[in-house]
């Protein structure tokens, strides 16, 4: 099956999202199991299952785009496109910073995909986006909580945000440079992903870049 430039880039985009969610699935368990309180731990474990489910849906979408028919192959690992900042999550602070920024960016991209081709993709992503909104709300709430905490925590959280945000922002800018994604109708024109992302981050008032 010959892939157009747009389709190749779109597959890479979906795999990047899927990979980050796949790694979040692990990190939410590894780190979340020792969350700051019982409620946080339970939420993290529940979100872990959610993120893994989202990655499965995205990988299956990629299989369809690549022309697989019938039963989908087992997903045994990510494709290597997860962000360094997500792979490096090692405590609650870095987990919240990564979950908030990466899922916020993913939400903007999925909205752009939906806007470009609603009738074809709505049945794939509608439920995922609803569930993801809850993950973003939860991590944003924790982000604000960490910024208002005492001692070294606000400083450490700001450092974590400053660490991950440029990587996520660079990814969005890279996507904006891929004209084939817009020309072939995979993303909506005038999506302004990067500027919208920075606008969204204003909810957590830290100078991150």
């Amino acid at each position: 099956m010959t892939q157009s430039a747009g389709l190749k880039s779109f597959i890479e985009l979906l795999e990047t999202i899927g990979d980050n969610k796949y790694v979040f699935g692990d990190k939410l368990v590894e780190v979340g199991v020792s969350g700051p309180n019982l409620e946080a731990t339970l939420a993290a474990i529940a979100m872990a299952q959610g993120e893994l489910g989202h990655s499965r849906l995205l990988y299956y979408w990629v299989f369809d785009l690549k022309g697989y028919e019938g039963k989908k192959p087992d997903v045994k690992g990510q494709t290597g496109k997860a962000f360094r900042g997500v792979e490096n999550v090692h405590n609650w602070i870095t987990l919240i910073a990564a979950l908030y920024t990466v899922n916020t960016a993913i939400d903007l991209i999925l909205n752009s995909i939906l806007e470009a081709n609603r009738s074809k993709v709505v049945s794939r992503v509608n439920k995922l986006m609803r569930e993801q909104k809850e993950h973003i709300l939860y991590s944003r709430g924790w982000a604000q909580h960490l910024l208002e905490d005492k001692g070294a925590i606000p400083r450490k959280f700001k450092e974590a945000l400053r660490e991950i945000t440029p990587e996520v922002g660079a990814w969005l800018r890279e996507i904006e440079q891929k004209s084939e994604l817009f020309a072939e109708g995979y993303l909506a024109k005038e999506s302004q992903l990067y500027s919208k992302f920075m606008e969204e981050l204003k909810d957590v008032p830290v100078q991150v870049v």
Binding site: Q49, G50, E51, L52, G53, H54, R56, L57, K127, L128, E131
Partner: peptide, 9 residues
């Protein structure tokens, strides 16, 4: 059909 959650195991 659908499922109650995308992550249904």
């Amino acid at each position: 059909m659908t499922y109650t959650a995308v992550s249904c195991a």
